[in-house]
């Protein structure tokens, strides 16, 4: 479904700030794989997801989604394959527009925007039904601007918007990290449910090792722009966080000093 072949990216090459963010990443994802990605700060997790989404063009390597070479396509042309949820809860919706308007825009992801109605009556009923799934009462607030929602509500809505049209690939960039623990848990459960029900192919970055072990059928650890650990469902099934830490130390020759990852 997703095939990365040796992709690299260096930011601000030839300057003092030069940063080799991705140093040859290859990854082959089968359909309905659910990969969790972990790694310390600056390991290249978000950069990897942004590279797949096309927020920048990679320096070398090849990116294929569902057999299509998208390596040199700009972000908006890859959008038809990809649903995304960001860490910042304000990123996923247009805050000055209503819930139904946001959903209508997501419903047309990757399609040509015409002069037809931005939202139809039939769609509105469809969105209302869909929102009921969240169990947040948003189905009665279709004309509320999303800027007025709480972070958790917005993130749940963004998740719904990203998955409504069953994308080939779902990219989740620490999408629960900015939420309080209770809401984070709820959004994560919802994520799991949607991915399972729609058999989506998903990549989820998390800073929480326990979540990374618990969810998904494959676990990838990044360090300094490289994949240093890649575990299958079988391999990760009986692992503990401590096992993961010692594997990290062995693979990177470094100790895990990021408190956020340990405590999460």
């Amino acid at each position: 479904m997703l095939k990365l072949t040796n992709i690299t990216k260096t930011f601000e090459p030839g300057t003092l700030n030069e940063k080799k963010a991705l140093k040859g990443i290859s990854l082959d994802m089968k359909e309905s794989d659910f990969i969790t990605i972990i790694g310390g700060n600056g390991a290249g997790k978000s950069t990897l997801l942004n590279a797949i989404a096309g927020m920048f063009i990679t320096d070398s390597g090849k990116i294929e989604i569902d057999g299509n070479d998208v390596t040199n396509l700009p972000e908006h042309k890859r959008a038809k394959y990809i649903g995304r949820v960001f860490q910042d809860t304000r990123m996923g919706t247009a805050s000055g527009m209503t819930i139904e308007e946001n959903m209508a825009m997501a419903y047309r992801r990757g399609k040509h925007r015409t002069l037809r109605k931005g939202i139809t009556k039939a769609e509105r009923d469809f969105y209302r039904e869909h929102l009921k799934m969240l169990d947040l009462g948003l189905e009665d607030r279709l004309t509320t601007k999303t800027g007025l929602l709480s972070g958790g509500q917005r993130q749940a809505l963004t998740l719904l918007m990203a998955t409504m049209t069953k994308p080939k690939l779902l990219l989740l960039d620490e999408h629960t990290a900015a939420l309080d623990p209770k809401t984070a848990k709820k959004v994560l459960e919802l994520t799991k449910k949607i991915i399972a029900e729609d058999k989506l192919t998903a990549l989820m970055i998390t800073h929480n090792m326990r979540d990374a072990l618990k969810h998904g059928n494959r676990l990838v650890m990044l360090d300094k722009g490289k994949i240093i650990i890649d575990l299958s469902e079988e391999q990760k099934k009986n692992l503990q966080v401590s096992d993961l830490l010692s594997m990290f130390e062995k693979a990177s020759g470094d100790s895990m000093t990021n408190d956020r990852m340990l405590l999460g």
Binding site: E75, A94, M97
Partner: peptide, 19 residues
């Protein structure tokens, strides 16, 4: 219209509508 929504979102949250 669909186009009008996209125009408004471009001013409101360009990253989102680009995605």
């Amino acid at each position: 219209t669909e186009f009008g929504f996209a125009l408004r979102a471009t001013g409101n949250n360009p990253k989102m509508i680009s995605a």
